[in-house]
Amino acid sequence: MRSGHLALSARGVQMQYRDRGTGKTLLAIENVDLDVPDGAFVSLLGPSGCGKSTFLKIVNGLLPATAGEIKLHRVAKGREDAMVFQDAALFPWYSVLDNVAYGLVCAGVSRGEARKRAVPFIDLVGLKGFDDKYPYQLSGGMQQRANLARALAVDSAILLMDEPFAALDAQTRELMQAELLRIWNAAKKTVLFVTHQIDEAVYLSDRVVVMAARPGKVIADIEIDLPRPRPLSVKRTPEFAVYEERIWRLIAGEYEHARVASQPDAAS
């Protein structure tokens, strides 16, 4: 269902903040441009401190950027974007059903109606039968399914995902990646996905945008030309390894660059 227009378009986004301790102004993000076509799956990949999560929060409206502009394609009803948070993002005092319904409640839907509309999304993410469980009764993977369902339920055009699988164990993470692609395919969403894992970004995405840290900036934008649907076995193909290798070199190069740049400091 690609209509050809852009779901998101960012120009010259910059984020600086003042360090409370030192009083110095720090540049977290320097001049980021990014286009995300409608229906695409785009990953922001980079080491911690590259401002990828910050960028997501700016898109979501949680933080104001200090310069630049972001345009989100307007939708007929509801919100343009919805966030899937990293971990521990469910309210421990709500059942799965109430947690998934919460995004709708925030949008002004009545509690009863929101619950009714949440049910199919609980089924979609594979949590059927867990409606009345509390978060502590769920495994980490199941909690992230509920987290995803909450964002899907508000029926936004674009999903913002902030390292949603970072806290999961390796096997669960792989399964969740495959699940995410299945759901993405069923729900027809645009996804902006933040991660620091190269294989995760390559496996999921149409495009991987590689970022470097201090200050955060885009250093590469790589088209992933692997056929869909992608079974997990794609990860064991030579084509996949080529992409991984290429991105790894980019990031390692940045590290080397940073290390050399900081050496005079270390010597003194």
Partner: peptide, 9 residues
């Protein structure tokens, strides 16, 4: 609190 804000509550 961020979650409520994120969903526009």
């Amino acid at each position: 609190l961020e979650i409520t804000r994120s969903f526009g509550g």
